[in-house]
């Protein structure tokens, strides 16, 4: 677009780039507004009592009120629900960091016969979608007596193929001279892992932290199956449940949506770099 010397001269040549640039900016900005509007509308609805009955939408409510939020935390156990989501997300994240880092270390630094096969089995099995396994997984967790427990919701999230691959690539980049120097100093694999590898793969650990947390915070199907009682529910399940309970009270439903989305948006805004890089790097080698 910047370079038109080689094309045949056109009457509009001089104004074309400027015009093109204006159109381009306009389209990008309009698109961005379309992306933002549902967020804006979620919030506006949440502070508009009786929004479900209004047929005259207003960009700012006549009588803004936070009573929908009060409903969530008094009539519904939303304080507990937020706590549940937080608890499960934090545990999932910590465990995934540990299981991924240790497995990645083995696949990068501990050669053994059949390692390639074991790695392939890891990847293949972990790529099997949960959706395919819900029946036997439910049976398995039920046999362990863990239906309707946090542990039942947590256990299937404890190993992550994404995490293992991400950290394995990061560990492969750590110079082996560092390990060898440590070995000469008498360090075993445990010490090399904690003192050399872990500090050197912090950016990858940060990326995994965010993805593991987001994955748990937003996960729906498995918690829906395992966590039966209202006081154990996580945000997405409670939010889906609000729709049934408050069919016309859209302010309450939207308030629930704000509560569930706000924390993850805050994390995204602070850690954007890691999120976008994590996604971008998945598409190119």
């Amino acid at each position: 677009m910047a370079d038109r010397q080689l094309t045949v001269s056109r009457p509009t040549r001089s104004s074309a780039p400027a015009l093109g640039s204006i159109v381009l900016h306009a389209v990008v900005i309009l698109g961005a507004l379309a992306m933002l509007f549902p967020f804006f509308w979620t919030f506006i609805t949440s502070i508009s009592p009786g929004a479900g009955f209004s047929i005259e939408p207003r960009l700012w409510p006549e009588n803004p009120s936070f009573e929908a939020y009060a409903t969530l935390f008094t009539e519904r156990p939303f304080a507990r629900v937020v706590g549940n989501s937080l608890l499960l997300a934090v545990i999932t994240t910590v465990v995934q960091l540990f299981t991924s880092a240790t497995a990645a270390y083995a696949f990068s630094r501990l050669p053994f016969r059949g390692r390639g096969v074991v790695f392939a089995v890891y990847l293949a099995t972990m790529m099997i979608p949960l959706q395919v396994l819900i029946v036997p997984l439910f049976v398995q967790v039920k046999n362990l007596g863990l239906i309707n427990t946090y542990l039942g919701a947590l256990l299937p999230t404890f190993a992550s193929a994404f995490g293992i691959c991400l950290l394995r690539q990061a560990i492969n980049q750590v110079p082996r001279e560092l390990d060898e120097a440590a070995t000469l100093d008498g360090a075993g694999h445990g010490r090399i892992f904690w003192q050399i590898i872990v500090p050197n793969i912090r950016p990858a650990l940060a990326t995994l932290t965010i993805f593991a947390f987001m994955g748990s915070w937003n996960s729906f199907l498995w918690p829906l199956i395992v966590l039966r009682s209202p006081e154990l529910q996580t945000l997405p399940i409670a939010l889906a449940g609000l729709q049934g309970q408050y069919t016309t009270a859209w302010d309450v439903v939207m308030a629930g949506s704000v509560v569930s989305v706000l924390p993850i948006l805050a994390i995204y805004l602070f850690a954007q770099k890691y999120v976008i890089q994590g996604v971008a790097s998945s598409g190119i080698k």
Binding site: M35, P38, M214, S257, S260
Partner: peptide, 30 residues
């Protein structure tokens, strides 16, 4: 712009479904 377009990606499918159900409400959705 990239950050804005990426914003919905980090939210949950349920939050997305719920707000679109409201936006696409036949009688009084926006």
């Amino acid at each position: 712009w990239r950050s804005i377009y990426f914003l919905p990606v980090v939210t949950s499918w349920i939050a997305v479904a719920v707000v679109w159900r409201w936006l696409l409400n036949p009688s009084n959705g926006v």
